[in-house]
Amino acid sequence: MDGVTTAGVRATARIEAGDDGRGGTSLPVLEGQGPLALRRVRGGGSEARVMLVGAMSGPLGGDHLTVEARVGPGARLRGGSAAATIALPGQTKGEARYDVRLDVADGGELCWLPEQLISAGGSELSVSVRVGLMGGARLVLREEQVLGRVGEEPGRLTSRLTVRRDGRPLLDQELACGPGAPGGWDGPAVLAGHRALGQLIVVRPEFEREMPAARPFGEYAALTPLAGPAVLVTALAPDALLLRRVLDNALGDLT
């Protein structure tokens, strides 16, 4: 890592997953840095499993963390995190950035299921998740945001999720909330007081032939087929536990 400076921490973690030629997945690159430590954990079948372990608290204001994962043809990678990520205010002014770049080749599969991101009071964090898929790639990606720890007002959080498939946009969504966010974010059109929100995107080439139908999951969640072989589940909930239950149910329905 470049080190801890007054400007905050700069760190990048890299994962590369490839077909090992024996029906499994190898990890030719598995490099953590600073607060981003990576561990390979026991996987099931042909998939490799990687756990992101937070080695320092944060991101704090001024930090810039990047996680990059590339999944090659025929490889299967499951990524998770050992605990929730908590955005906290830093000693330096300014926002923290957390960038995630995920690329999956034809015949590759990525399940990216990190734990929640918690936006603690006074924090400022900008998250960007960019996914690039080849046409034959498969993806399950979950994002969960919790606005504030228990009984706490949230920090400022901006989160953008962009998924491209064969270079074409498949999903592009940004959410801004907390103090200083554009007006109405907590109102009747956007979050209506909910403090946990999540998105689950599932991309499968076979959806080209048969797309799941749109359906609600209660009053505050829905599964929606996108304009491509993918579905998005959007969910709001009072807390992280109830949110996870909705997203798990929706994923269970799809598999």
């Binding site: 953008r160 962009t162 491209r164 946009p169 592009d172 969504q173 940004e174 959410l175 801004a176 554009p182 009747p188 059109a189 956007v190 979050l191 209506a192 929100l197 749109a214 359906r215 609600p216 009053e219 505050y220 969640a221 829905a222 929606t224 959007t234 969910a235 709001l236």
Partner: peptide, 21 residues
């Protein structure tokens, strides 16, 4: 054009699906 704003409103999306049904 991918740099254009992408601000989303979860309840507008969820509500639209309920409404359509």
């Amino acid at each position: 054009v991918e740099t254009l704003p992408a601000a989303s409103a979860p309840l507008l999306e969820i509500g639209a699906e309920a409404h359509a049904a």
